[in-house]
């Protein structure tokens, strides 16, 4: 920039080394300040698209599990997505534990997927890990797939009674969201 100035008006351009350096410094500093200012503006412009306060506040859900009978599941909503809460029967628990040692695509034991002391409550997202469809098997009378858990009709992923992927294109087990028992019968998800 200083160069163009100097060539534009050769007659009056500062010639001493000091002067040129000072001019360069000023121009660079001024342009840099403009650049920093421009970058600073990007931050709020980007951050405004992140979830707003009301969305974040609604990102935890409480579910009362006391009314779920063994073998039944309920669908709740967590972050605007389906959440499956299922009380396993003794047979389903046994089947899941038997398969803990089987060759699994995404190895996890039933114990790792449930909370201590509540081994019969399986909480998973109702979102197939393949492309995000809602698997069947939570509601009464729905197809449970070859492994007796959940079945995704979109591309035929079969999940077992612990919600682990056993067959089909899905890469991982149904996600177990972060949750905790706030009392014996109430879980808080998120």
């Amino acid at each position: 920039m200083a160069d163009t100035t100097a060539t534009a008006t050769p007659d009056t351009a500062t010639t001493s080394d000091d002067g040129i350096r000072r001019r360069d410094f000023l121009d660079i500093a001024a342009v840099s300040a403009a650049g920093i200012g421009g970058l600073a503006v990007v931050y709020p412009l980007v951050s405004q698209m992140a979830p707003s306060k009301d969305v974040l506040a609604a990102s935890s859900t409480e579910v009362d599990v006391s009314a779920i009978e063994p073998g039944q599941a309920i669908k709740a909503v967590f972050r605007k997505q389906p959440l499956f809460v299922k009380r396993l029967t003794a047979e389903e628990i046994a089947a899941a534990q038997r398969d803990d040692t089987a060759s699994l695509r995404d190895p996890q034991t039933l114990a790792e997927r449930t909370k201590e002391g509540h081994g019969d409550i399986l909480v998973t997202m109702g979102v197939c890990t393949h492309l995000g469809c809602v698997p069947l098997g939570a509601a009464e009378g729905e197809v449970k797939g070859e492994f007796g858990g959940y079945f995704c009709p979109c591309h035929g992923s079969h999940y077992d009674t612990a919600g682990r992927i056993r067959k089909g294109p899905a890469p991982t087990n149904l996600e177990v969201p972060e949750y905790e028992f706030t009392s014996d019968t109430v879980i808080q998800v998120g």
Binding site: A50, S52, K53
Partner: peptide
Amino acid sequence: EHIMRDVNWGWLM
């Protein structure tokens, strides 16, 4: 008001 209260930097925008 949602923009003013809840959206990140919404009040500034």
